[in-house]
Design a protein around this nucleic acid. Structure first.
Length: 218
DNA sequence: GCGACAG
DNA sequence: ATCTTGTCGC
């Protein structure tokens, strides 16, 4: 694999990212997550899940799962080349396309400005938000403990995202623009879809995958 | 050279 | 990400 070439693809993708709100109202919010049969082996079998919830009551209205093989290893800053293929198959199979996608990982808060959330958004031309459980790039100060507080994630003085407290006294999540949305609106949607630390669409997708992997269904 | 490093 | 049970705290 030629990482130099892949970096070039990411820089090109970053130039296409739109950081403004290019949509009207949001009714459906989707969350995508992946799970792997093995983490030590590559290739390995894997599954991707999309759960769409209604923004008004956070009730799930659609769930889709796809199974496949992942052959690219996990390399920090190159996550998209490992997980995007299966996510794109999931997108194509989905009967319902949500107004906004919450993606497990960074959006523009990435060394070359194109984390998996932005990459997926540009590839599918859809609205996306990056929601990561830990930081990849930038510096920040711990936000105050109450739900809703946030502090900027900075890189060379520029705001590339925020550390957002979606639940009181709980570790924050890192939110960044994926594609076709502003950081302000991204924060608003993540807060509106969060009951626990992880936004409902992603949390439900993750829960479904744990059951699928263990053969409880799917 | 050393530490950091999404999932 | 996965391996894994109970347990302590709000």
């Amino acid at each position: 694999m030629d990482l130099q070439h892949l970096e070039e693809i990411q820089r090109d993708c970053a130039q296409r990212v739109v950081k403004e709100d290019l949509f009207k109202d949001v009714r459906w919010v989707g969350g995508i997550d992946l799970t792997f049969e093995s983490i030590k082996e590559t290739p390995t079998k894997a599954w991707a899940c999309l759960v769409v919830v209604q923004l008004k009551d956070l009730k799930p209205v659609y769930t889709e799962v796809v199974e496949g093989t992942v052959d690219f290893p996990y390399i920090p800053t190159f996550l998209a080349f490992r997980e995007l293929p299966l996510m794109l198959r999931l997108y194509e199979k989905a009967k319902i396309k949500p107004d906004v996608f919450l993606i497990d990982g960074q959006g523009v808060a990435h060394p070359r400005g194109c984390g998996i959330a932005s990459h997926f958004g540009v590839e599918t031309d859809s609205v996306t938000i990056g929601v990561a459980k830990t930081k990849l790039w930038g510096v920040y100060r711990e936000p105050s403990p109450e739900r809703g507080s946030f502090s900027p994630l900075l890189y060379r003085g520029s705001v590339i995202g925020v550390a957002l407290r979606t639940k009181a006294k709980t570790a924050p999540v890192f939110v960044s623009v994926g594609h076709k949305i502003s950081l302000k609106t991204a924060i608003d949607i993540v807060l509106k879809t969060s009951v626990f630390r992880i936004p409902e669409p992603i949390r439900l997708a993750h829960n479904t995958l744990q059951r699928v992997r263990k053969g409880w269904l799917g």
